[in-house]
Amino acid sequence: MTFFLQNFFNGIMLGGLYALIAVGYSMVYGILRLINFAHGDVMMMGVYFAYYSAVVFSLNPILSFTVAVLGAAALGFLIDRVAYKPLRKAPRISALITAIGVSFFLENLAVVIFGAIPKSFLDVFKDKSILEKTITVADARIPLLTFLVIIVTFAMFSVLFFVVYKTKIGMAMRAIAADIPTTSLMGVNVDNVIGFTFALGSALAAAGGIMWAMRFPNVHPYMGFVPGLKAFIAAVFGGIGSISGAVLGGILLGMIEIFLAAYFPSVMGYRDAFAFIILITVLLVKPSGLLGKKAIEKV
């Protein structure tokens, strides 16, 4: 039971982080039918923003994370304006290739600005005792950090769902996902709403990345690749284009990874392969994913 609980909390935490990043892929895909390959790199930039504002500008962790999340949101918005917006009417493949270009650009920009030598995210915390605190749940000792990450993650999801389902801009996002020209004829400035979507997705990814870095503190310019890829798989697993799908897919993927590694330690080395096995299985069996709608080609 203790062992189970420990893994359960780890699974929720890892899955929640995948989900936070996956939502950005799914929202952008839902609206533009674009796989934003640069998404993981925006996450990486967000982690650097947090690192530098804490270590160099000595902001306290909470403040530096806020700055980083806002910085990533601005970056996401900017990327859309500069790289994707001019290609709205171009064939979809052009935007896709541009996304790969933006990804390389961000990685290399990070090498130039921040350097290729990995940094430890733990430097962010002056008081490292918080990292060692644990909470005991039915004999299982769960790190306090794990709880914090889970709480923050779910708080962010609540905000996300509120924005998407209860606010005007969220309504516009859903309308755009259904039909861009018609939405613009309703007087909605579609480009602004798309920009907002990028900002929102990037903010969530940065928050996910920062919490990822607390767990895996190795900060380097290519650190966005693995979580980005996993989150993408999670988005496809849950049904790309669906926000609830991305959340579900992320949490399930995290759980599956943790539990397989826990109960079958001999296959631990293949942990990353599980994600791809899931991806291939989903694509073969239910290409629209768990909660996705049947693929209707958008014209």
């Binding site: 259904a178 039909d179 018609t182 004829l185 309703m186």
Partner: peptide
């Protein structure tokens, strides 16, 4: 649309997954 022209479509183009109320709210957005 802001200036005051609105239209309907030959083939109905409602936001079919959204409620009646939401369809109207989107249009009030601007």
């Amino acid at each position: 649309t802001h200036l005051g022209i609105a239209r309907t479509f030959q083939n109905i183009r409602l936001f079919s997954d959204m409620t009646v109320l939401e369809n109207v709210l989107v249009a009030q957005h601007h």
